[in-house]
Design a protein around this nucleic acid. Structure first.
Lengths: 157, 157
DNA sequence: AAAGATTGAGCGCTCAATCTTT
DNA sequence: AAAGATTGAGCGCTCAATCTTT
């Protein structure tokens, strides 16, 4: 693409960093998903939803609260909850104080699923990721992540 | 999940870093995909395939070569190429010297698509990502990425 | 109208099964 | 059998449209 003009391309350093970063992202994600899926039948997305419910009072949240915690698109969340509901991981209860809403509740099966999945998942995260990095690298990564996140927010959409 | 025993959980620092990292990944990816999609009708995956073809001699590659360059699963690639073929971005030509294979060729429409998409995409990558980071941070990120990548390879599957 | 939420279509990814040529 | 490649099923994500309650 170097023959085009009028655009500021990435520097060679930036290109290399960008490609390495994208590839790492994709492969790490695929590996973690595969481990979770084959060991416990959950996806990374299921896992994230279940963690939020586990951490919440009474194991239940409104969809819009989950949305804010996870930063997911509304329809993604809605579709995902439908699938989790079909598989019995969460229940949908009526919301007495707001007729538009529902409560998403952790079922016993959902709680059992996250409890049996967690050790293997944490172990995979540790083995594949943290065990290869120094404390300083982890700290630097966190700073980079929050900086980019803030930037994404600041630049709106 | 803190009540379970017998598993080494992540330290608070690691937890924070991990959550920030995952969230950054997901949101950056979604934003870049949306920009590409709405500005030029391509996905990030389409873009990656087209870049590889553009960079190759005569604009054509065997699927297994693309697979090694992109590090994708075979069936992911195969499905993806089918969709790109349907949309006219690539052609499938017979491979004369190996009866099992095909050549994936960049079409004029494919070349036009990547050429019109590239400036906007690079600009988004720069704005959303690189402009918020120092050169040192970029270098550190590349090191972390390649270290993790090497680790993923070493740990096989 | 805004807030909370769902739905259907269309594309993306993974797994397991399958097919042909080497 | 291994290498190169495809297919179908099932789940995941996004966009646009829609619905109900506030």
């Amino acid at each position: 693409m170097g023959h085009m003009t009028g655009t500021r391309w990435l520097s060679p350093d930036q290109q290399r960093a960008w490609r390495a970063f994208l590839r790492m992202q994709g492969r790490l994600d695929a590996r973690l998903n595969r481990q979770l899926q084959s060991d416990s039948g959950l996806s990374l997305a299921d896992y994230d939803v279940l963690v939020q419910l586990t951490d919440s009072a009474q194991g239940r949240l409104r969809p819009y609260e989950l949305q804010r915690l996870l930063q997911w698109e509304q329809s993604r969340l809605s579709h995902h909850l439908s699938r989790m509901h079909r598989r019995g991981l969460v229940a949908r209860d009526e919301c007495t104080n707001d007729g538009r809403g529902t409560y998403i509740t952790l079922t016993d099966a959902g709680r059992a699923a996250i409890e049996s999945a967690a050790p293997g998942h944490v172990d995979a995260v540790r083995r594949l990721f943290f065990d290869g990095l120094t404390g300083e690298q982890v700290a630097a990564l966190e700073r980079v992540s929050t900086q980019v996140l803030d930037r994404l927010d600041a630049l709106h959409t």
